[in-house]
Measured scan of single mutants.
Amino acid sequence: SRSVIRSIIKSSKLNIDHKDYLLDLLNDVKGSKDLKEFHKMLTAILA
């Protein structure tokens, strides 16, 4: 869910600018399909 993804971003080791950017992107995501794609992208970034 959106709140879980937000929590993953906030607890990541990324610097604050990257976190803010990803949180802004997350706010722009519409629909469950796009949310799944965003989660895939985030997982790849944090891997």
Rank of each mutant, 00 (worst) to 15 (best):
K19R: 05
L26V: 03
R6G: 04
N15H: 13
S12G: 03
K19S: 02
I9A: 01
D17K: 15
S7L: 13
Y21A: 08
G31W: 07
G31R: 06
D28V: 09
H39R: 14
K33W: 07
D24S: 15
I8L: 14
I5G: 01
L42H: 00
S3G: 10
D28M: 13
F38S: 00
I5M: 09
I8E: 04
D24A: 15
H39Y: 15
H18K: 09
L26A: 01
L46G: 02
N27E: 06
V29Y: 06
S3T: 09
K10R: 11
I45W: 12
S32T: 12
S12M: 05
A44M: 14
D20Q: 15
K30C: 06
D20T: 15
A44D: 07
M41L: 07
S1W: 15
A44P: 03
I16T: 12
K40Y: 06
I16M: 13
K40G: 05
S1H: 13
M41C: 06
S3V: 09
H39L: 14
D17E: 14
Y21R: 09
L35T: 03
H39W: 15
V4Q: 12
K10H: 08
D24G: 14
S11T: 08
R2S: 04
L22R: 00
I8F: 07
L35F: 05
K13M: 09
T43Y: 13
L42M: 05
I45M: 10
V29W: 04
S12N: 02
L46A: 02
L26H: 00
S32V: 09
F38M: 02
D34H: 11
L26T: 01
L14E: 01
I16A: 14
S11I: 05
D28T: 13
L46C: 03
H18I: 14
T43E: 07
E37V: 12
L35E: 03
D28P: 03
H18Y: 12
T43R: 14
K40A: 09
L25V: 06
D20M: 15
N15D: 10
V4L: 13
L22F: 04
L35D: 01
S1K: 11
D34C: 09
I45R: 01
S3P: 05
S12Q: 02
G31C: 05
L25R: 07
L42D: 02
L46F: 06
L14I: 04
D20G: 15
R2Q: 05
R6P: 01
L25P: 00
D28E: 13
L42I: 10
D20N: 15
H39I: 13
A44H: 08
K19M: 06
K10L: 15
K33Y: 07
S1V: 11
L26Y: 02
V4C: 10
A47N: 10
S12W: 04
D34E: 14
S32G: 11
L23N: 04
D24C: 14
I8P: 00
I8G: 01
S7I: 07
L14V: 03
S32N: 09
K30L: 06
G31I: 04
K13G: 10
S1Y: 15
D20F: 10
N15I: 06
Y21F: 09
I45N: 02
R2P: 04
N15P: 13
S3L: 13
K33L: 07
L23V: 04
V29A: 06
L26E: 00
N27F: 05
D34Y: 11
R2L: 15
L14Q: 01
L23W: 03
I8V: 06
V4M: 13
Y21G: 03
L35A: 03
S11D: 09
S3W: 10
S11V: 05
K30D: 06
L25W: 07
N15K: 10
D20K: 15
I45A: 05
T43G: 07
D17F: 09
I9D: 00
L42A: 02
I9T: 01
Y21N: 05
D34G: 15
D20I: 15
I9F: 02
H18P: 02
S12P: 01
D34I: 05
L14M: 04
V4S: 09
K33V: 08
K30M: 07
K40W: 07
E37Q: 12
K36M: 13
L42V: 09
A47E: 07
L25Q: 06
I5F: 05
D17W: 13
G31V: 05
N15S: 14
I45H: 04
D20V: 15
Y21M: 08
G31A: 05
V4N: 08
R6A: 11
S7P: 00
R6V: 13
K40I: 11
L42Y: 03
V29P: 03
N27H: 07
D17Q: 12
V29F: 04
L25H: 03
A47G: 09
N27C: 04
H18V: 14
V4P: 03
S3N: 14
F38Y: 04
S3D: 13
S7A: 11
A47F: 10
K10Y: 09
V29N: 02
M41S: 04
T43P: 02
L46D: 01
L46K: 01
L46H: 01
K30S: 08
K19I: 08
R2G: 04
L23S: 03
L46Y: 02
S7C: 08
L46V: 05
S7Q: 12
L46Q: 02
K36E: 12
F38L: 03
I16S: 14
S7K: 13
V4W: 08
L14G: 02
T43Q: 11
L23Y: 07
S7G: 09
M41I: 07
I5P: 01
D34M: 14
T43I: 14
H39N: 07
R6H: 05
L25D: 01
E37L: 14
L26D: 00
D28K: 15
S12T: 03
L26K: 01
K10P: 00
L42W: 04
L26S: 01
R2A: 09
K36H: 14
L42Q: 00
M41F: 10
D20Y: 15
E37G: 07
L35Q: 02
N27T: 05
L14R: 01
D17H: 13
L35M: 08
I8A: 06
I16D: 11
R6S: 08
V29C: 09
D34P: 08
F38W: 03
I8W: 06
K30Y: 06
S7D: 12
H18R: 08
S32P: 12
H39F: 15
R6N: 04
T43H: 08
S3R: 07
A47M: 11
S32F: 13
L42N: 00
L25I: 06
L42T: 02
E37C: 06
D17A: 13
I5D: 01
I8R: 06
S3E: 12
L23F: 05
K10S: 07
L35G: 01
D24F: 14
S1C: 11
K13W: 11
M41P: 00
V4D: 07
I16E: 13
I9Q: 00
N15R: 12
I5C: 05
G31E: 06
L35R: 03
F38T: 01
G31H: 07
D28L: 14
L26P: 00
K36F: 14
G31Q: 05
D34V: 05
V29T: 09
Y21P: 00
N27L: 07
L46M: 07
S11M: 12
I9Y: 00
K13L: 08
S11N: 14
H39V: 15
I45D: 01
S11Q: 11
K10D: 05
G31S: 13
A44G: 09
T43K: 12
E37N: 12
S3K: 11
S12E: 02
L23E: 03
A44S: 10
A47K: 11
I5L: 14
M41A: 05
K33G: 07
S11R: 13
R2I: 12
L35K: 02
L22W: 04
S1D: 11
R2H: 08
R2C: 04
D24I: 13
Y21K: 08
F38G: 00
E37S: 12
V4H: 11
A44N: 10
K40M: 10
I5S: 02
S11P: 01
D24Y: 15
I9V: 04
K30V: 10
I5R: 02
D20E: 14
I5Y: 06
D24M: 14
L22V: 02
L14Y: 04
I5W: 04
H39C: 10
K13H: 11
R6D: 04
A47W: 08
Y21H: 07
A44I: 11
K33F: 08
S12A: 06
D34W: 11
E37W: 15
K40N: 08
S1N: 10
N27K: 14
N27S: 10
G31L: 07
I45G: 02
S1L: 15
D20S: 15
L26I: 03
E37Y: 10
L42R: 00
L14W: 02
S3Q: 13
L23A: 02
G31Y: 08
K30T: 08
I45C: 04
L46I: 09
K13F: 09
K36T: 08
L22C: 02
E37F: 11
L22T: 00
L14C: 03
K10N: 09
S7R: 12
D24N: 14
L42K: 00
L14F: 03
H18Q: 12
I8Y: 04
S1M: 14
N27Y: 06
K33A: 11
Y21C: 05
H39Q: 10
I16Q: 14
D17P: 07
M41Y: 11
G31P: 02
H18A: 10
K40S: 09
K40F: 06
K13C: 06
V29H: 04
K10E: 11
S12C: 05
H18N: 05
S12H: 02
V29K: 04
A44C: 06
I16L: 10
L23I: 06
V29L: 07
S7E: 13
R6Y: 07
I5V: 05
R6K: 10
K19A: 04
S7N: 12
S12D: 01
H39T: 10
F38V: 02
V29S: 04
K36I: 12
R2E: 05
S1E: 11
N27M: 10
D24R: 15
E37H: 09
